[in-house]
Design a protein around this nucleic acid. Structure first.
Lengths: 201, 201, 201, 201
DNA sequence: GATGAATGAGTCTTCATTCAT
DNA sequence: AATGAATGAAGACTCATTCAT
């Protein structure tokens, strides 16, 4: 990519980033068309290639941008050592919702990036993806697992939470317009349900 | 579609159906290319359009075929009234695995169909999709929910099972070659984990 | 390239080959546009890429085709050992003119191929180009150089003939429609002029 | 073009002229890109169009500039009436080499201009091109043709010299970095070879 | 019925040119 | 005067679809 992108007004940068994230998030790398981004952002086709050379280059940039931004947000959501596991996970989701104010499609896009398998971009995003996953792991390890560990194979249960969060997020985006409140309410309900059966004794 | 498709030898019908399902399952409707199906099935390009007019027509047909076939299989897996909820769900998964012998990509394809949102096909598959979902509901209602119902919002927990089964299935297909045994083992492990925390008293 | 190209009717093959050679000969590799070939040949854009994948692939194919065809023609123009050097060179030019009946732009195209420097194709044509040059050398070595050799640095004079033939050919094509008779007459006049000053004693 | 170009510092004028000549000489009118000129000269893209409106306008200007400059140089190389024909031609080549100090690509560019056939610029350069050719003719007519004229159709031989000089010049530029000494040595060798066969009696 | 040659609209990418600063 | 961000038409290439055989 062309570093002069950063000399653009932050506003325009974000217009482009949001345009790209929206289309990529909804359509995936391959099926996203630059024309759609032109329509979504109002930024002319030539400019995308002026800064990002190729569609793959654009994808890699926006993917890295989103994951780094997410890591920054995560680093600021003050996870304490020994905090309850479910509280930590809810903080993660709240954190995602904070991104939405500036980058409405970022949470969905991140979800897409973590699943993307197109050979044109997979190598380019492997690194940040790994760093992001590592950070999630690390933060989660601060949590208090005592109640969970009473259950043999408790990680199967946490996996199910992962799958559930992703599914809820997608449902949120794919049914009309995304509502942060609605999403968080769903998240909390599911999290609580799981928490109750686990913490019960 | 052209009804003469049914006059083809069953073997050839299945060759085409499998070719289409494989590509659609792996790439989704839009990103699937007819050339890929030609390669995957060895059936010439002209023939696909001879029987199915358009890619959308082909998709709708195969989607309907797969869901109907699945419903047939489900109807034959003898869910008894009052059977334990988790046993029923495992029967569903076993049932999916049975399809694989004749149609290796059918479970993944069904998963894809239920999520497909491309406007070119969404309307055409809405009906069967609904019928399939209804049948799943109906069968599930035969199950014994007593243990579950002790938990307020137990349906949140069953939703999580849904999301988990889908995720496991996709993982199975996207990591090399699919193994029925491996998949069922994963399914049982996760189901058991959930069952234990729920049935514990 | 796709070998099925050879299963096309020879007529169509030649239509495409001629369309490509014309544009490539007149514009060079880079500046040639596939749209121009579509217009020149009446063959649709998709078909070019069906058989040749890329513009570079098309160029390499047509270049190899032309040079091989030229070598075939050369092999049939019966150069005898000990034939007069200038007679041999005129035979070469007559041979070029014979190609024109089936492939009107082939001589100019060959001239273009031998000068082409675009990195996208240079490697792909290096081999045939070398073989062609080798064959020209080999055939020329059959000629009777005795009169020439009386002149120190006679190869400088033959180089000048090379440059002259190329220039005459280009002039022929670039001034309206190419005339075989006019070209051969020019060639003979120049060749004679050089021959006279050299053979005079 | 915008006459204010001449109010620029001569140094900057030459930077732009050299940048344009280099790219045009190496790539021809059509294949030359303004971005390449920006890179080659360090002058921003906007400025080129500020002074020259279009690429064609720039080309026409630089072509005229080069040919006029060449005519000026030629006028200063003191061709005497009755000087030997070959000496005159060598003076021409020496004259070209003198240009290289200020304008490294000018000789190649002139060669390119005289062959350029792109319809976008051909009309615009026709005039200067003709004047340049006329001047060359005129200067050449001062030379002593007596030895040449003994040969019927001697002009065919001088044509061959033309073609040869052009070819040598191009070889010089296209094989790594151009060497004035090497080029002049080649020129003299070829000229001598021709001279010997012609002047021998 | 079966094939794959043939088409052209659509996608990614380049590049001359414009324009706000 | 000078810059380079911004534009859109044009070029390379893809792919669903048609059609002659």
């Amino acid at each position: 990519m062309n570093d002069k992108f950063y000399t653009l007004k932050k506003e325009k940068q974000d217009t482009m980033i949001n345009g790209a994230m929206q289309i990529f998030a909804l359509c995936g790398y391959r099926h996203s068309s630059t024309d759609d981004m032109v329509k979504a952002s109002g930024v002319s086709k030539g400019l995308w290639f002026h800064y990002f050379d190729t569609k793959a280059g654009l994808y890699s940039f926006v993917a890295a941008y989103a994951l780094k931004y997410a890591m920054l947000e995560l680093s600021m959501c003050s996870i304490e050592d020994g905090e309850d596991y479910f509280d930590v996970r809810i903080k993660f989701e709240v954190c995602k919702m904070r991104m939405i104010d500036k980058y409405p499609y970022m949470p969905l896009f991140i979800c897409e990036v973590l699943r993307e398998e197109d050979p044109d971009v997979e190598d380019d995003i492997a690194d940040v993806r790994e760093r992001y996953n590592d950070m999630m792991q690390e933060l989660l390890l601060k949590a208090d697992y005592r109640a969970l560990r009473k259950h043999e194979d408790y990680y199967l249960l946490t996996d199910m939470l992962d799958y559930t969060m992703d599914a809820l997020l997608m449902n949120g985006y794919h049914s009309g317009s995304f509502s942060k409140e609605e999403y968080l309410s769903q998240v909390k309900k599911h999290m609580d349900a799981m928490k109750k059966v686990i913490y019960r004794d």
